[in-house]
Design a protein around this nucleic acid. Sequence first.
DNA 1: GATATATTGTTGACAAGGAAACAAAATGAC
DNA 2: GTCATTTTGTTTCCTTGTCAACAATATATC
Lengths: 161, 161
Amino acid sequence: MDKEEQVLMSFKNLLNKLILLNKTKMEESLKGYKPSEVHCIEYIGKHVDSNVTKLAEFSYMTRGAISKMTKKLIKKGLIESYQKPDNKKEIYFRLTEQGKIIYKIHEELHKEFRERDKAVFEQVTEEQLDMMIHFAEKYSRHLEAEIKKQGIKINQNKFDE
Amino acid sequence: MDKEEQVLMSFKNLLNKLILLNKTKMEESLKGYKPSEVHCIEYIGKHVDSNVTKLAEFSYMTRGAISKMTKKLIKKGLIESYQKPDNKKEIYFRLTEQGKIIYKIHEELHKEFRERDKAVFEQVTEEQLDMMIHFAEKYSRHLEAEIKKQGIKINQNKFDE
DNA sequence: GATATATTGTTGACAAGGAAACAAAATGAC
DNA sequence: GTCATTTTGTTTCCTTGTCAACAATATATC
């Protein structure tokens, strides 16, 4: 295995572990809420006028899946939908009071995770962090161009958090 | 969003795009074979005496899921199982001739992917690659320790390829 | 304006994978 | 040796998410 592959493998491994650990932690603090649901709440909490399509793109999931999930979140009373007077097609979401509580807890958890991993980040310089971000974004843009070239719809699944 | 978060977000984004693109490419070349199946074939091709448990650990999936998948792969004639005379419990897998063909095609695809992304890697130095690998592995080990501390079983899903 | 095309959200059928319970065998404790 | 514990693989039930078809609305073209 050469270095190119090694980089990607180590990233995959890292994120798998991170997902596993954080998911387990989250299930303790937020019993009854699935990671994908919390993820959805997080996005809605951070973006005004989020709708099914935008959520799907952000989450790398299909609109169908998001449609079902938002319905469930509405039923659970965590989000509510609304429309605008000049558009009868698009449906937007916002958090309910209960949803905001979940959002808050999730934020706290994130802080906890950061605290937990602080030691690791203390061992790299800011320049190194910048370098990695730059690399990942450059690579991302390269893939983005390839995806466009192929005419692939970004709707498939994977890697949330 | 601070830099710590930004690094992880950019990694997630990168891998999501990579998975999406490679998956689509793979579905063209290997019609009828799911990414998880190919992934499984890849592991079996690379490791002698692979069994359900090892495959599960490697793939971040449950033994149940792997058990079902290997059965399907056997039915499709891509792998075969065998046992050792001194162990009536463990069941090992190896590729059939047909499986080796799939393995080969997958290898070729990988080369193709590397070629496609060469330009990105040409813009970073070997030291930078080393640095990133080192960071990811260090972080991984940190999480590994945390996971052990919590007594979590590594069995959940996510991030293959 | 009218009409074709694209976008948005929804649904039902289906498949993949997780959780938990289980049997069989291996390992460990004594 | 015997008995308890652990490991391994399997199965059943259930949840999640994809796919594809669809209706409703919006946008583009003429």
